[in-house]
Nucleic acid binder design. Structure first.
Lengths: 103, 103
DNA sequence: TCACTAGTTCGATCATCATCGTACTACGAT
DNA sequence: ATCGTAGTACGATGATGATCGAACTAGTGA
């Protein structure tokens, strides 16, 4: 098995500008909403998005490097999970505020 | 006197992507923090920023059009106020979450 | 009226970034 | 081993946007 966690910033390395910039993109916001609905994690490819696989990978990398989500391998699949705890600790209320938007 | 309010979106016209994108820029985040510290409003030019006046005007326009702040005239000055109430109603917790970042 | 100040608008420039196709890696199954 | 699947990395391109200087607008005060 040997699942592996992809490189991501520690909690104290997360910068609020990076988080906001990452969230301020429609496709990425869609991804975050999907992750919020699935606390157990979501396989990247299972989220319906109007972009190609390479663009999807780009957005996931952006979100991961901003500290918004965590990704670990599971065979050939990659499971992404929202870093709720870290974000809530750093910016209490931010995530719930965003998710409460009736889009 | 005849202070005038500059054009801005109504509460129900505010889109979360626009707000996040507006906040995800260092200079604009600095402006928002300054406004948060001064609930009565701040004269645009009184915020220390590492940019020229025209760039400053550009950022203020972006924030205003996103629905983050409101601007009204006061003689030759323009006073900007954070739209706390509207943002709190739309995205409860978002603003406090962002402002609690120890930058 | 005539400056002076505060701020905007416009056009140009340069950087960033969202997007894509292609090539590549890694794992699983046959 | 080989093939198929999931996803990444790379390079290119086009769009967006941050920045500036210069010209403009509007209010204040002499």
């Amino acid at each position: 098995m040997a699942t592996k966690v992809l490189p991501q910033p520690e909690r104290d390395e997360i910068r609020v500008e990076a988080v906001l910039q990452a969230l301020g993109e429609p496709v990425r916001l869609t991804i975050v909403r999907a992750l919020a609905d699935n606390p157990a994690g979501v396989c990247c490819g299972d989220i319906e998005l109007p972009v190609t696989a390479s663009t999807r990978a780009h957005h996931l990398k952006t979100l991961r490097e901003a500290g918004v989500l965590s990704t670990h391998t599971d065979g050939t699949r990659r499971i992404s999970v929202l870093r709720r705890e870290d974000l809530e600790a750093l910016y209490p209320g931010l995530l719930t505020g965003i998710l409460s938007a009736k889009q």
